[in-house]
Design a protein around this nucleic acid. Structure first.
Length: 707
DNA sequence: CTTACCCAGCTTTTT
DNA sequence: GCTGGGTAAG
């Protein structure tokens, strides 16, 4: 017993050993959240005699799950990894693979990623002949996702007022998914709730499977995840959740800092324990973080945690204002080089950004200084077109109902099969697309017959051997469709890089053959892979979005682009709630740092067109200016000649010099293409303009001139 | 049906 | 600077 509790502080011990009622642990950044969960699992097993496979633990990333599994396994000295440590999405997929039939699905269902779902919605909008201006793809997709996440039909009613055909779209969308034996990300969760609600016996079975449930990063769970927990717990007490409302950064995915407070309502007699002692950062960094969050608003504020540490003062965070983004990147790279001499390693550094496109500029300079780096996240490996192409062949062979896979490959590379032929095939479709192709075969022209024959042969071959030897089959497809030629002609610039990706795919497939996993498991893993899962152990600087940095810590952190419009994002300007989220994001970013923290900004930043725009320092800097040390770099390249002054000087100046591109509502403007117009509304870097000839358009400010 | 070319629009965050 | 869509020619 001493063993497990050793090294924990009083509150942590309490959290680990409390079982009398549902437990909510409010745990600040760096306060040992994950540690509490891991130790509680060990306590359950060692001291209460509960088998590890009867404990369900939910983490936010697969990486965290894997680490927790390993730690628990090692600490308990057990043969097998604990089975039920995973993310909500992986858990749901696992449950649904077993219970799919109850929902009219087949166990071999495919998980549609963002791109697949979007294409389905696009097809549906076309099919229903709706205006793409009113039913904007991105918006419709978001609404559908919201409806599924909030478990609330009134959302549909609400949007249906302006989009009367929305219910029809939703219905058709669902139909398409079921016909493809596919689920989207939201379905994974939603279908579990449906399953449990409609099948009490199934629910009971799963309730009986778990004696205790623990959830990490609870502040970022949404309604539907909460519902899954409620169902699994039933009327028992067996749940501990750990979270921090200050770190809720996924409201756009249905999470809300208030949700964590509702836990008390849904689980009666909830006990609350606060962990406010921070083991990660220096006092100055924590003080800065506390200042940021003390400006927050909202009901959860009463639950605000005040972090403290006995680590000592430490150095003040440094604010550096560079002239341009190039110099910003240059500064960061140089600073890293400098700190390396003080004994830091590359892997001690993280560069955090609010928007992923900011990484390009950084990359350039990291390369220039020969600093090994890894961009975490961004376009993920399995989302790359070439990887998806090859996988689509395997996917389709495996699941010939998969409409999106079929549409992707039937004319890839060009087989002379276009819209018309696909329509024809569709008219023959009864169950799956492969059968439809075979049935439609006779009615095709001789030329197309040959091409279809080739296609069928490829698919049939993959069907025969795909399950055992996916890597060989991938190679076979690659050769059979002459994919290398296709790549070379389609992407003359970077086809070699893409080819390298294909090779990596072959390796990944070989790896699963070795590990004894099935192709389906492989597909599931790849579609649920997260940014953090790709983090390499290598000694390299990590560049990532603030979102991707959740739960991680680094000795030295740079936060780049601390400018209004970037951090906070320009989109949050008109929406209080979103601005609040930006604040929490900033809080998360700052609390990643253990020892040193640099905030950098560029006075001029180029937009995609290459034009430089003046920037304003982030509004969040005002709250923390006394905490910051200001570093200015002299004109010439002598980086060493820096002068220190107070941060407030820089915060005062730029506002007044903002004349060059300041627009206002009602202003007469000119656009190269659209001609003269009047600004109706300005949001962020865009303006709604009514043009005399072409009507209303939303235009980026960069493209407008004063008339 | 395909290809080649032009143009508009654009960058949150992601399971 | 990139991409997806639209269009005209083959």
């Amino acid at each position: 017993m001493e063993d497990i509790l050793q090294g924990l502080n009083e509150e942590q011990k309490q959290a680990v050993t409390y079982f009398s009622s549902p437990l909510l642990v409010l745990a600040g950044a760096g306060s040992g959240k994950t540690r509490v969960i891991t130790h509680k699992i060990m306590f359950l097993v060692n001291n209460l005699g509960i088998p590890s496979n009867r404990i369900l633990a939910i983490t936010f990333t697969n990486k965290a799950a894997q680490e927790m599994k390993e730690r628990v396994q090692q600490a308990l000295g057990i043969e097998e990894e604990p089975q039920w440590i995973s993310t909500f999405h992986s858990l749901s997929a696992k449950i649904l693979r077993i219970e799919a039939e109850h929902l009219g699905y087949n166990r071999d269902f495919i998980i549609y990623d963002e791109e697949d779902s979007k294409k389905v919605i696009k097809d549906v909008i076309k099919e229903l002949e709706l205006s793409e201006d009113i039913y904007k793809l991105e918006r419709v997709k978001n609404i559908i996702s919201q409806i599924k996440q909030y478990l609330d039909d009134s959302i549909l009613d609400f949007y249906a007022m302006t989009m009367p055909h929305l219910p029809k779209i939703l219905e058709k969308y669902e139909e398409h998914l079921v016909l493809s034996n596919a689920m989207d990300f939201d379905d994974l969760l939603l279908n579990v709730v449906k399953l449990f609600r409609e099948n009490p016996d199934v629910l009971e079975k799963w309730q009986n499977k778990f004696d205790y449930i623990l959830v990490d990063e609870y502040q970022d769970t949404n309604k539907i995840q909460h519902e899954i927990l409620k169902l699994l717990v039933g009327d028992r007490d067996c749940i501990t959740v750990v979270g921090d409302p200050q770190q809720c950064i996924y409201t756009w995915r249905g999470a809300n800092p208030e949700n964590i407070l509702d836990f008390e309502n849904d689980f009666p007699n909830t006990k609350i324990i606060k962990l406010e002692r921070n083991y990660r950062s220096t006092e100055t960094i924590l003080d800065t973080a506390n200042k940021i969050i003390s400006g927050a608003k909202g009901r959860w504020k009463e639950k605000v945690l005040k972090l403290w540490t006995d680590k000592g003062k430490g150095e003040k965070p440094v604010l550096v204002a560079l002239d341009t983004e190039k110099q910003e990147a240059n500064f960061i790279a140089k600073q890293i080089k400098k700190l390396l001499e003080e004994g830091y390693r590359y892997s001690d550094f993280a560069i955090l950004i609010r928007m992923s496109y900011l990484s390009r500029n950084l990359e350039e300079y990291l390369m220039k200084y020969s600093i090994p780096y890894q961009i975490v996240g961004g376009l993920k490996f399995f989302e790359r077109a070439e990887v998806k192409d090859i996988l689509a062949y395997l996917r389709f062979a495996f699941q010939p109902k998969d409409t999106q896979a079929f549409k992707r490959i039937i004319n890839l590379p060009s087989r002379g099969i276009g819209e018309k032929t696909i329509q024809k095939i569709a008219s023959f479709k009864e169950t799956d697309w492969l059968q439809a192709v075979k049935d439609a075969y006779e009615s095709m022209s001789p030329k197309i017959k040959i091409r279809l024959q080739e296609f069928i042969e490829i698919i049939e071959t993959v069907r025969r051997y795909g399950n055992e030897k996916p890597s060989e089959m991938a190679k076979y497809v690659f050769d059979a469709i002459k994919y290398e030629e296709y790549l070379a002609s389609k992407y003359p610039k970077d086809w070699e890089d893409r080819l390298a990706n294909i090779n990596e795919l072959f390796n990944a497939l070989k790896e699963i053959e070795r590990s004894g996993k099935t192709f389906l498991e492989f597909l599931e893993e790849t579609s649920l892979a997260q940014a953090q899962d790709t983090i390499e152990e290598s000694n390299s600087v990590k560049v990532m979005t603030v979102h991707a940095s959740k739960g991680l810590e680094f000795p030295v952190v740079f936060i780049a682009g601390v400018e209004d419009g970037i951090f906070p994002s320009g989109r949050s300007f008109e929406d209080m709630e979103q601005m609040e989220e930006e604040r929490r994001l900033f809080y998360v970013a700052v609390t990643r740092a253990k020892e040193k923290l640099f905030l950098t900004m560029a006075k001029l930043r180029s937009s995609y067109s290459g034009h430089y725009n003046e920037t304003k320092p982030s509004r969040f800097l005002k709250d923390i200016k006394e905490n910051l040390k200001l570093l200015t770099t002299k004109k010439k390249q002598t980086v060493s000649s820096k002068t220190s002054k107070t941060a407030s000087t820089i915060l005062k100046t730029p506002l007044s010099s903002q004349t060059s591109n300041s627009f206002f509502t009602g202003q007469l403007v000119k656009h190269d293409v659209f001609g003269k117009g009047v600004i109706k509304q300005i949001t962020g870097n865009k303006a709604k303009v009514i043009f005399e000839n072409v009507g209303e358009k939303t235009i980026l400010l960069d493209f407008l001139k004063k008339a």
